[in-house]
Design a protein around this nucleic acid. Sequence first.
DNA 1: TCCTATAAATAATA
DNA 2: TATTATTTATAGGA
Lengths: 170, 170
Amino acid sequence: MDKRGGKGSQKIELKLIESKEARTVAFSKRKHGLDKKPKEYSNLTGADIDSILFTQAGKSHSYGSPSVEKVIDKFHELKQNNSQQNHTDMSKTNVFEAFEDLRKEVQAFKKKDLGSELPTDKYMLENRLKQFEAYKSRLDKIKNQIKGDVPAEQFNFISEVALKLEKMSS
Amino acid sequence: MDKRGGKGSQKIELKLIESKEARTVAFSKRKHGLDKKPKEYSNLTGADIDSILFTQAGKSHSYGSPSVEKVIDKFHELKQNNSQQNHTDMSKTNVFEAFEDLRKEVQAFKKKDLGSELPTDKYMLENRLKQFEAYKSRLDKIKNQIKGDVPAEQFNFISEVALKLEKMSS
DNA sequence: TCCTATAAATAATA
DNA sequence: TATTATTTATAGGA
Protein backbone atom coordinates (compact mmCIF):
# COMPACT_ATOMS: atom_id res chain seq x y z
CA MET A 1 0.00 0.00 0.00
CA ASP A 2 1.11 3.51 -0.50
CA LYS A 3 2.10 5.54 2.44
CA ARG A 4 1.87 8.85 0.73
CA GLY A 5 1.01 10.67 3.87
CA GLY A 6 2.99 12.56 6.40
CA LYS A 7 3.72 12.26 10.07
CA GLY A 8 0.16 12.25 11.20
CA SER A 9 -1.37 14.45 13.83
CA GLN A 10 1.10 15.96 16.25
CA LYS A 11 0.36 17.75 19.43
CA ILE A 12 0.25 21.49 18.95
CA GLU A 13 0.33 24.36 21.34
CA LEU A 14 -2.87 26.20 21.99
CA LYS A 15 -1.48 29.51 20.93
CA LEU A 16 -2.54 31.84 18.20
CA ILE A 17 -1.20 30.54 14.92
CA GLU A 18 1.13 33.17 13.55
CA SER A 19 0.72 32.71 9.83
CA LYS A 20 -2.57 33.95 8.58
CA GLU A 21 -2.71 31.25 5.94
CA ALA A 22 -1.97 28.50 8.42
CA ARG A 23 -4.72 29.94 10.56
CA THR A 24 -7.17 29.73 7.71
CA VAL A 25 -6.20 26.14 7.01
CA ALA A 26 -6.56 25.19 10.65
CA PHE A 27 -9.94 26.80 10.75
CA SER A 28 -11.10 25.02 7.63
CA LYS A 29 -10.13 21.70 9.07
CA ARG A 30 -11.67 22.33 12.44
CA LYS A 31 -14.85 23.92 11.23
CA HIS A 32 -16.43 20.55 10.58
CA GLY A 33 -15.78 19.28 14.06
CA LEU A 34 -16.93 22.51 15.55
CA ASP A 35 -20.35 22.01 14.03
CA LYS A 36 -20.48 18.32 14.62
CA LYS A 37 -19.93 18.34 18.36
CA PRO A 38 -22.88 20.47 19.34
CA LYS A 39 -25.03 18.66 16.81
CA GLU A 40 -24.19 15.40 18.51
CA TYR A 41 -24.99 16.76 21.93
CA SER A 42 -28.21 18.14 20.63
CA ASN A 43 -29.23 14.82 19.12
CA LEU A 44 -28.20 12.76 22.10
CA THR A 45 -29.59 14.83 24.92
CA GLY A 46 -32.31 16.83 23.24
CA ALA A 47 -30.64 20.02 24.34
CA ASP A 48 -31.05 23.20 22.40
CA ILE A 49 -27.65 24.33 21.31
CA ASP A 50 -26.42 27.28 19.43
CA SER A 51 -22.91 28.33 18.66
CA ILE A 52 -21.81 31.47 16.94
CA LEU A 53 -18.33 32.33 15.91
CA PHE A 54 -16.70 35.41 14.51
CA THR A 55 -13.25 35.13 13.04
CA GLN A 56 -10.92 38.04 13.42
CA ALA A 57 -11.44 38.67 9.75
CA GLY A 58 -15.05 39.38 10.58
CA LYS A 59 -16.53 36.29 9.01
CA SER A 60 -19.09 34.38 10.95
CA HIS A 61 -19.77 30.72 11.33
CA SER A 62 -22.46 29.19 13.40
CA TYR A 63 -24.49 26.17 14.28
CA GLY A 64 -27.87 26.01 15.92
CA SER A 65 -30.49 23.46 16.78
CA PRO A 66 -32.91 22.76 13.94
CA SER A 67 -34.94 25.89 13.96
CA VAL A 68 -32.02 28.27 13.97
CA GLU A 69 -30.23 26.79 11.01
CA LYS A 70 -32.03 28.58 8.21
CA VAL A 71 -31.73 31.90 9.93
CA ILE A 72 -28.03 31.43 10.31
CA ASP A 73 -27.54 30.43 6.71
CA LYS A 74 -29.36 33.53 5.69
CA PHE A 75 -27.13 35.57 7.91
CA HIS A 76 -24.13 33.97 6.31
CA GLU A 77 -25.18 34.95 2.80
CA LEU A 78 -25.91 38.43 3.95
CA LYS A 79 -22.46 38.78 5.41
CA GLN A 80 -20.90 37.93 2.08
CA ASN A 81 -23.01 40.49 0.29
CA ASN A 82 -21.79 43.19 2.58
CA SER A 83 -18.23 42.07 3.03
CA GLN A 84 -16.83 45.33 1.69
CA GLN A 85 -18.16 47.42 4.51
CA ASN A 86 -15.88 48.02 7.41
CA HIS A 87 -16.73 47.78 11.03
CA THR A 88 -17.28 50.94 12.95
CA ASP A 89 -17.81 51.66 16.55
CA MET A 90 -21.45 52.06 17.33
CA SER A 91 -22.89 54.31 19.95
CA LYS A 92 -25.86 53.38 22.06
CA THR A 93 -29.20 52.62 20.55
CA ASN A 94 -32.37 53.79 22.16
CA VAL A 95 -33.63 50.27 22.64
CA PHE A 96 -30.68 49.37 24.74
CA GLU A 97 -30.72 52.69 26.48
CA ALA A 98 -34.30 51.99 27.42
CA PHE A 99 -33.23 48.76 28.96
CA GLU A 100 -30.42 50.46 30.78
CA ASP A 101 -32.87 52.98 32.17
CA LEU A 102 -35.15 50.17 33.14
CA ARG A 103 -32.38 48.55 35.07
CA LYS A 104 -31.84 51.76 36.99
CA GLU A 105 -35.51 52.14 37.75
CA VAL A 106 -35.76 48.61 39.04
CA GLN A 107 -32.66 49.18 41.11
CA ALA A 108 -34.14 52.34 42.60
CA PHE A 109 -37.35 50.48 43.27
CA LYS A 110 -35.35 47.82 45.02
CA LYS A 111 -33.52 50.32 47.21
CA LYS A 112 -36.67 52.11 48.20
CA ASP A 113 -38.29 48.84 49.16
CA LEU A 114 -35.33 47.62 51.12
CA GLY A 115 -36.52 49.18 54.36
CA SER A 116 -40.16 48.24 53.99
CA GLU A 117 -42.03 45.60 55.91
CA LEU A 118 -42.72 43.37 52.97
CA PRO A 119 -39.87 40.90 52.78
CA THR A 120 -41.70 38.87 50.14
CA ASP A 121 -41.84 41.85 47.85
CA LYS A 122 -38.21 42.55 48.49
CA TYR A 123 -37.35 39.05 47.54
CA MET A 124 -39.42 39.24 44.41
CA LEU A 125 -37.86 42.49 43.40
CA GLU A 126 -34.41 41.15 43.95
CA ASN A 127 -35.17 38.22 41.77
CA ARG A 128 -36.70 40.41 39.15
CA LEU A 129 -33.63 42.56 39.13
CA LYS A 130 -31.36 39.58 38.88
CA GLN A 131 -33.34 38.13 36.07
CA PHE A 132 -33.47 41.39 34.31
CA GLU A 133 -29.73 41.79 34.60
CA ALA A 134 -29.19 38.37 33.14
CA TYR A 135 -31.52 39.28 30.31
CA LYS A 136 -29.76 42.56 29.79
CA SER A 137 -26.40 40.81 29.74
CA ARG A 138 -27.54 38.61 26.98
CA LEU A 139 -28.89 41.45 24.94
CA ASP A 140 -25.65 43.28 25.47
CA LYS A 141 -23.72 40.29 24.30
CA ILE A 142 -25.79 40.03 21.19
CA LYS A 143 -25.50 43.74 20.69
CA ASN A 144 -21.75 43.45 20.80
CA GLN A 145 -21.77 40.59 18.38
CA ILE A 146 -23.89 42.57 16.03
CA LYS A 147 -21.74 45.60 16.56
CA GLY A 148 -19.00 43.90 14.62
CA ASP A 149 -21.24 43.06 11.74
CA VAL A 150 -23.62 45.86 11.08
CA PRO A 151 -22.04 49.15 10.10
CA ALA A 152 -22.92 51.94 12.50
CA GLU A 153 -24.69 53.97 9.88
CA GLN A 154 -27.15 51.25 9.04
CA PHE A 155 -27.68 50.34 12.62
CA ASN A 156 -28.49 53.92 13.40
CA PHE A 157 -31.01 53.96 10.61
CA ILE A 158 -32.73 51.03 12.28
CA SER A 159 -32.65 52.79 15.62
CA GLU A 160 -34.21 55.88 14.19
CA VAL A 161 -37.09 54.01 12.68
CA ALA A 162 -37.59 52.15 15.92
CA LEU A 163 -37.77 55.43 17.77
CA LYS A 164 -40.33 56.81 15.36
CA LEU A 165 -42.46 53.74 15.79
CA GLU A 166 -42.30 54.00 19.53
CA LYS A 167 -43.46 57.60 19.41
CA MET A 168 -46.27 56.81 17.04
CA SER A 169 -47.61 54.10 19.28
CA SER A 170 -47.63 56.15 22.45
CA MET B 1 -1.09 -4.50 34.59
CA ASP B 2 -4.67 -4.35 35.62
CA LYS B 3 -7.33 -4.21 33.04
CA ARG B 4 -10.10 -3.04 35.30
CA GLY B 5 -11.95 -1.24 32.56
CA GLY B 6 -14.69 -2.19 30.19
CA LYS B 7 -15.10 -2.57 26.45
CA GLY B 8 -14.02 0.91 25.64
CA SER B 9 -15.79 3.37 23.45
CA GLN B 10 -18.32 1.88 21.08
CA LYS B 11 -19.99 3.62 18.24
CA ILE B 12 -23.39 4.91 19.26
CA GLU B 13 -26.34 6.08 17.29
CA LEU B 14 -27.02 9.76 17.16
CA LYS B 15 -30.48 9.43 18.53
CA LEU B 16 -32.01 10.84 21.65
CA ILE B 17 -30.92 8.72 24.58
CA GLU B 18 -34.06 7.24 26.08
CA SER B 19 -33.12 6.97 29.71
CA LYS B 20 -33.03 10.29 31.42
CA GLU B 21 -30.19 9.16 33.65
CA ALA B 22 -28.10 7.93 30.77
CA ARG B 23 -28.74 11.24 29.11
CA THR B 24 -27.42 13.08 32.11
CA VAL B 25 -24.33 10.90 32.20
CA ALA B 26 -23.68 11.44 28.52
CA PHE B 27 -24.06 15.13 28.99
CA SER B 28 -21.67 15.20 31.93
CA LYS B 29 -19.02 13.43 29.94
CA ARG B 30 -19.45 15.50 26.84
CA LYS B 31 -19.76 18.83 28.55
CA HIS B 32 -16.01 19.07 28.91
CA GLY B 33 -15.38 18.49 25.24
CA LEU B 34 -18.12 20.86 24.32
CA ASP B 35 -16.33 23.68 26.07
CA LYS B 36 -12.91 22.65 25.00
CA LYS B 37 -13.45 22.63 21.26
CA PRO B 38 -14.51 26.22 20.83
CA LYS B 39 -11.86 27.27 23.30
CA GLU B 40 -9.23 25.66 21.13
CA TYR B 41 -10.55 27.31 18.03
CA SER B 42 -10.59 30.59 19.79
CA ASN B 43 -7.01 30.22 20.92
CA LEU B 44 -5.70 29.00 17.63
CA THR B 45 -7.43 31.36 15.26
CA GLY B 46 -8.22 34.32 17.47
CA ALA B 47 -11.88 33.97 16.66
CA ASP B 48 -14.52 35.17 19.03
CA ILE B 49 -16.69 32.23 19.93
CA ASP B 50 -19.69 31.83 22.04
CA SER B 51 -21.80 28.79 22.63
CA ILE B 52 -24.97 28.56 24.63
CA LEU B 53 -26.84 25.43 25.46
CA PHE B 54 -30.14 24.71 27.12
CA THR B 55 -30.92 21.20 28.21
CA GLN B 56 -34.49 20.04 28.02
CA ALA B 57 -34.58 20.28 31.79
CA GLY B 58 -34.08 24.00 31.38
CA LYS B 59 -30.55 24.17 32.67
CA SER B 60 -28.05 26.20 30.75
CA HIS B 61 -24.44 25.68 29.97
CA SER B 62 -22.27 27.92 27.94
CA TYR B 63 -18.84 28.95 26.83
CA GLY B 64 -17.73 32.28 25.53
CA SER B 65 -14.55 34.03 24.58
CA PRO B 66 -12.90 35.67 27.59
CA SER B 67 -15.20 38.56 28.22
CA VAL B 68 -18.44 36.62 28.25
CA GLU B 69 -17.43 34.12 30.86
CA LYS B 70 -18.25 36.10 33.97
CA VAL B 71 -21.63 37.12 32.72
CA ILE B 72 -22.48 33.55 32.00
CA ASP B 73 -21.34 32.38 35.40
CA LYS B 74 -23.55 34.97 36.95
CA PHE B 75 -26.43 33.79 34.89
CA HIS B 76 -25.77 30.26 36.01
CA GLU B 77 -25.95 31.15 39.68
CA LEU B 78 -29.10 33.08 39.12
CA LYS B 79 -30.71 30.14 37.44
CA GLN B 80 -30.04 28.01 40.49
CA ASN B 81 -31.58 30.56 42.81
CA ASN B 82 -34.76 30.54 40.83
CA SER B 83 -34.92 26.89 39.95
CA GLN B 84 -38.28 26.43 41.62
CA GLN B 85 -40.18 28.61 39.23
CA ASN B 86 -41.78 26.92 36.31
CA HIS B 87 -41.64 28.01 32.73
CA THR B 88 -44.65 29.62 31.20
CA ASP B 89 -45.49 30.65 27.74
CA MET B 90 -44.77 34.31 27.20
CA SER B 91 -46.69 36.59 24.94
CA LYS B 92 -45.09 39.29 22.91
CA THR B 93 -43.19 42.10 24.53
CA ASN B 94 -43.47 45.63 23.30
CA VAL B 95 -39.79 45.83 22.53
CA PHE B 96 -39.96 42.96 20.16
CA GLU B 97 -43.25 44.12 18.78
CA ALA B 98 -41.59 47.39 17.98
CA PHE B 99 -38.95 45.55 16.06
CA GLU B 100 -41.56 43.54 14.27
CA ASP B 101 -43.33 46.74 13.27
CA LEU B 102 -40.04 48.15 12.17
CA ARG B 103 -39.48 45.21 9.93
CA LYS B 104 -42.85 45.81 8.32
CA GLU B 105 -42.16 49.46 7.82
CA VAL B 106 -38.83 48.79 6.20
CA GLN B 107 -40.45 46.19 4.02
CA ALA B 108 -43.16 48.62 2.96
CA PHE B 109 -40.49 51.21 2.28
CA LYS B 110 -38.68 48.71 0.16
CA LYS B 111 -41.76 47.87 -1.87
CA LYS B 112 -42.62 51.48 -2.47
CA ASP B 113 -39.11 52.16 -3.62
CA LEU B 114 -39.01 49.17 -5.91
CA GLY B 115 -40.49 51.11 -8.80
CA SER B 116 -38.50 54.25 -8.28
CA GLU B 117 -35.62 55.52 -10.32
CA LEU B 118 -32.99 55.29 -7.64
CA PRO B 119 -31.39 51.88 -7.96
CA THR B 120 -28.71 52.80 -5.48
CA ASP B 121 -31.29 53.56 -2.86
CA LYS B 122 -33.07 50.37 -3.66
CA TYR B 123 -29.90 48.45 -3.14
CA MET B 124 -29.18 50.19 0.11
CA LEU B 125 -32.64 49.54 1.37
CA GLU B 126 -32.47 45.93 0.46
CA ASN B 127 -29.26 45.57 2.34
CA ARG B 128 -30.64 47.42 5.27
CA LEU B 129 -33.62 45.17 5.32
CA LYS B 130 -31.47 42.10 5.11
CA GLN B 131 -29.27 43.28 7.89
CA PHE B 132 -32.18 44.19 9.99
CA GLU B 133 -33.73 40.81 9.47
CA ALA B 134 -30.55 39.12 10.55
CA TYR B 135 -30.47 41.33 13.59
CA LYS B 136 -34.10 40.63 14.31
CA SER B 137 -33.51 36.91 13.94
CA ARG B 138 -30.85 37.01 16.55
CA LEU B 139 -32.93 38.97 18.95
CA ASP B 140 -35.76 36.55 18.39
CA LYS B 141 -33.49 33.67 19.08
CA ILE B 142 -32.35 35.20 22.31
CA LYS B 143 -35.89 36.03 23.16
CA ASN B 144 -36.84 32.41 22.73
CA GLN B 145 -33.94 31.30 24.84
CA ILE B 146 -34.97 33.66 27.55
CA LYS B 147 -38.56 32.60 27.16
CA GLY B 148 -37.64 29.26 28.68
CA ASP B 149 -35.90 30.85 31.61
CA VAL B 150 -37.78 33.87 32.78
CA PRO B 151 -41.32 33.29 34.03
CA ALA B 152 -43.91 35.19 32.01
CA GLU B 153 -45.07 37.21 34.96
CA GLN B 154 -41.67 38.67 35.66
CA PHE B 155 -40.93 39.26 32.04
CA ASN B 156 -44.16 41.13 31.68
CA PHE B 157 -43.22 43.29 34.61
CA ILE B 158 -40.05 44.22 32.82
CA SER B 159 -41.99 44.93 29.65
CA GLU B 160 -44.35 47.21 31.45
CA VAL B 161 -41.59 49.27 32.96
CA ALA B 162 -39.92 49.47 29.58
CA LEU B 163 -43.13 50.75 28.07
CA LYS B 164 -43.50 53.40 30.74
CA LEU B 165 -39.98 54.56 30.14
CA GLU B 166 -40.56 54.81 26.44
CA LYS B 167 -43.63 56.95 26.97
CA MET B 168 -41.84 59.18 29.41
CA SER B 169 -39.03 59.87 27.01
CA SER B 170 -41.24 60.79 24.06
C1' DT C 1 -9.01 18.49 -0.94
C1' DC C 2 -7.33 13.84 0.14
C1' DC C 3 -4.59 10.40 3.01
C1' DT C 4 -2.15 8.60 7.05
C1' DA C 5 -0.42 8.57 11.63
C1' DT C 6 -1.26 10.37 15.95
C1' DA C 7 -3.73 12.83 19.39
C1' DA C 8 -8.18 13.54 21.70
C1' DA C 9 -12.65 12.41 23.00
C1' DT C 10 -15.57 9.27 25.00
C1' DA C 11 -18.77 4.70 25.82
C1' DA C 12 -18.57 0.97 28.63
C1' DT C 13 -17.33 -0.59 32.94
C1' DA C 14 -15.75 -0.85 37.84
C1' DT D 1 -15.01 9.52 39.56
C1' DA D 2 -11.18 6.72 37.22
C1' DT D 3 -9.48 3.34 33.65
C1' DT D 4 -9.37 1.30 29.23
C1' DA D 5 -10.64 0.23 24.58
C1' DT D 6 -12.33 2.35 20.59
C1' DT D 7 -14.03 5.79 17.84
C1' DT D 8 -13.29 10.57 16.24
C1' DA D 9 -10.87 14.48 15.17
C1' DT D 10 -7.01 16.42 13.11
C1' DA D 11 -1.73 17.96 12.06
C1' DG D 12 1.28 17.11 8.55
C1' DG D 13 2.14 16.27 3.97
C1' DA D 14 0.96 15.28 -1.24
